[in-house]
Nucleic acid binder design. Structure first.
Length: 506
RNA sequence: GCCCCCAUCGUCUAGUGGCCUAGGACACCACCCUUUCAAGGUGGCGGCACGGGUUCGAAUCCCGUUGGGGGUGCCA
């Protein structure tokens, strides 16, 4: 148990002692058997696309559950009938699977559905009422507001605390917040001290008898024997309330850990409305799951050894072995698509050739020849930022071919750039002659032939290849040229070169 | 308004009182290499929010200010 604690709490332990916080802060709150088989949970609500922020907290829980031989419990919090959509549930499961959180892994448990446990939530609420920890209130939301206005306060003032109301239609059950303070012991942030006086008597059961999030969440965590609640910082203000609920229900609270939220360039919490946050969307945009996982986990956390390695690219195995909540940075982190993309490029570059070819081929439109693509694919692997860049990088190989096809779709800026020099026309003409006479149509011969021509024109290969490149591919940038010519084939390459020469003359 | 959290290059971070003239990554710039673009190599730009303490010594500890964020629902 001692060594296990060190694995979980590690540095924080020392930190706690050094900073004069209670040395027992992080350890007292969990019962021994829980710590020896820690149970983490991820509890999303199915109200929209699966969010990158959710993916990050899920990943953290997953890493910890696996390393500590614990359990990752997936619980769908579907108690908001108005906003829940069943189709999002599968979306959550698929998204988790994509980032490697797999239902078939022995550390995975669930999905459980919060709605299925409604009876237990209500029963707990009734127990709270019986014990006097909660009371009924007949004020409507509007009336609460009106009173607050009158009294010059904000929120609910505890009006029904001692009115001895019984349950009834339209009456909500409120928690009787006790006097004193609530200290939340948080693995990421240390002790957070709340004055209970600033916490109003919150609602447990709605007027229609349905349980609220705060209650349902606690009852489920309790019943599922959750030992560690790792979630985003937006829940920190809820935590003292939940902790009071744990207390009132007669149980020691779990270990809390609140990681900072992810923000956009305006430094606001990532929002589904404003920002591109759907995991699914990044997947469809050609981001690799491994790259996403690596990026998400290194947002606010640096793997040990990253500095010496000069890279933040690490395997999931390393992440799982080293991730520690106490090492997570405390500030909100900007979700930077540029850096994600840089990671992605590295991951594509490092992909196994066969795996890469399969993934890249999957991006091709139906009509494009797979064999031609396979020939050029290795040459574009380290040039791709996203898988979705594939078609645009090789499209020229699959344009209509032959004399009756459409004219080449030149990029005008490229054309202008390539045809400026006086010598480019004559050079192109010589290249065509040389290629026409070429015995073997392979990239080495193709290169050698142009090199011979370029010597006569006293230009470097870099310049000499520009017009032929634009003539055949339509642009000044692209995959290695002679390999491209080789794949395209003699007839079509020559046809395009001649077409360009014709355009030059006209 | 009130409660809570946070504060190191543009961004993500390393840093737990002397190894800091503050290190790395992404981005950006330059050069090298080069078959364009990439990749790779080398170098550069760029930061401890501010003000007070404590200390022989502070990015690191304390206080305050400022700034940012989260919460403040019969949402989750």
């Amino acid at each position: 148990m001692q060594s296990l604690q060190r694995q979980i709490f590690g540095q924080r332990w020392r930190k706690v002692v050094q900073h004069g916080r209670s040395a027992t802060a992080a350890t007292d709150s969990v019962e021994d058997e829980m710590t020896s088989h820690p149970r983490f949970r991820f509890a999303p609500s199915p109200t929209g696309f699966f969010h990158v922020g959710g993916a990050r907290t899920a990943l953290m829980n997953w890493a910890l559950a696996r390393r500590l031989e614990g359990t990752f419990v997936l619980r769908i919090e579907d108690t908001d009938e108005a906003r829940n959509q069943p189709e999002w549930i599968q979306g959550i499961i698929d998204a988790l699977a994509w980032i490697g959180i797999d239902e078939s892994d022995p550390h995975f448990e669930g999905p459980h559905f919060q709605s299925a446990n409604a009876e237990a939530h209500v029963a707990a609420a009734h127990r709270l009422f019986e014990s006097g920890a909660a009371y009924y209130c007949d004020l409507t939301g509007q009336e609460v507001q009106d009173r607050a206005k009158e009294l010059g306060i904000t929120g609910y003032d505890g009006y029904s605390r001692d009115r001895g109301l019984e349950a009834g239609p339209g009456r909500v059950l409120r928690f009787r917040v006790p006097e004193g303070r609530t200290i939340v012991q948080d693995l990421v942030r240390g002790d957070v001290d709340f004055d209970n006086g600033t916490i109003e008597d919150f609602v447990l059961l709605r007027g229609n008898g349905a349980p609220m999030f705060l209650l349902a969440n606690v009852v489920d965590d309790l019943e599922m024997a959750i030992s560690h609640v790792v979630r985003a910082e937006e829940h920190l203000p809820n935590t003292p309330k939940q902790q009071m609920l744990w207390d009132a229900l007669g149980h020691a609270p779990p270990v809390w850990a609140h990681v900072p939220v992810l923000v956009n360039e305006q430094r606001k919490k990532l929002s589904k409305r404003r920002d591109k946050v759907a995991l699914e969307q990044y997947r469809d945009d050609g981001i690799l799951a491994d790259a996403m996982v690596n990026y998400l986990m290194t947002l606010g956390w640096t793997p040990p050894g990253a500095e010496e390695a000069g890279s933040e690219i690490v395997t999931w195995g390393q992440i799982e072995a080293d991730f520690a909540l106490e090492d997570v940075n405390l500030s909100p982190a900007f979700f930077d698509v540029k850096k994600l993309t840089a990671f992605n490029k590295q991951y594509i570059k490092n992909m196994d050739p066969a795996e890469y070819l399969a993934a890249a081929s999957a991006q091709l439109p139906p009509g494009w020849d797979r064999e031609s693509f396979a020939a050029i694919a290795p040459h574009i692997q380290e040039r791709l930022e996203r898988l979705t860049d594939v078609p645009g990088a090789v499209d020229f190989l699959f344009w209509p071919q032959g004399d009756d096809s459409d004219p080449i779709d030149y990029d005008e800026a490229s054309w202008t750039k390539a045809t400026d020099p006086e010598w480019s026309g004559p050079l192109l003409s010589d290249v065509i002659d040389a290629y026409d006479a070429l015995a073997s149509w392979d990239h080495e011969s193709l290169k050698a032939a142009i090199e011979e021509v370029m010597v006569r024109f006293e230009v470097k290969l870099g310049k000499a290849q520009t017009l032929p490149r634009v003539a055949v591919t339509g642009r000044t940038v692209g995959p290695p040229l002679f390999e491209s010519f080789e794949v395209l084939g003699r007839d079509e390459t020559l046809r395009r070169l001649r077409a360009a020469l014709g355009r030059l003359g006209s």
